[in-house]
Design a protein around this nucleic acid. Structure first.
Lengths: 113, 113
DNA sequence: TGTCTACATATAGAGAGCCTACATGTAGAC
DNA sequence: GTCTACATGTAGGCTCTCTATATGTAGACA
């Protein structure tokens, strides 16, 4: 997966895995990998700053917990985060429709119609 | 359309509109707009440098023409450009599958399966 | 005891590409 | 004479993602 391709879609991805359950960063990375069928391996240097940005925007809240002697920062969607996710989903549809419409192969003799 | 979303997909877009016919920059911008159903308005400051980059990569060749007193630089796909387009198309499918798989809404009680 | 792997978070710095804004010029309509 | 459409191009900035690195705990294994 080309790194640049994810640009601008990371927010949607993060918001989406947090939709129904709060998770900490490390678990988010694993969830992303599982849900994408192994296609998405997002590095920690991408996820942690992105989560903080999303929190700064008011889409997430976080709190520390200690589990098995290890500290975790667990993130949870805010009401604004749920709204943002809905927006991201419809933006994703518009985006794929637009790009897909251009990329779709067409025969030379029947242009667009 | 959020600007960042296009990041990394511009090459595919440009290659695709040039697949069956050579076009000049201005016409490419119009074609992108038409084919995307009006969703894509790519500014000249994005397209012209991108076309040059693609030419530098060997995916396009260009030649100047004068039509109606106006100068145009017309771009055409090379053999390598056709191959690159095929690669971009399959990358696009993998990308949408991966992100789509994560974004797809799921009910809280039936996770992934 | 020491080492390795998995778990867990974080930051600095670099790189790339897309955008805004601006510059330049022709042709045709009004 | 002015305005819009046509047409190309560059400089500079911005933002996000990545690589690399740092730090530390827990548990397995030898």
């Amino acid at each position: 997966m080309n790194a640049d391709a994810l640009r601008g879609h990371m927010d949607a991805l993060l918001l989406s895995v947090l939709e129904h359950e709060p998770l900490h960063g490390y678990a988010i990375i694993e969830a992303l990998q599982v849900r994408s069928g192994g296609a998405l391996s997002v590095p920690t240097g991408t996820v942690y700053p992105a989560l903080r940005r999303l929190e700064r925007l008011g889409y997430l809240t976080s709190e520390w917990a200690t589990v098995g002697g290890r500290k975790r920062r667990t993130y949870r969607l805010t009401r604004a985060g749920h709204a943002a996710l809905a927006g991201e989903r419809s933006a994703w549809r518009r985006f794929t429709d637009a790009v897909g419409g251009v990329l779709a192969p067409r025969s030379p003799e029947s242009p667009a119609r």
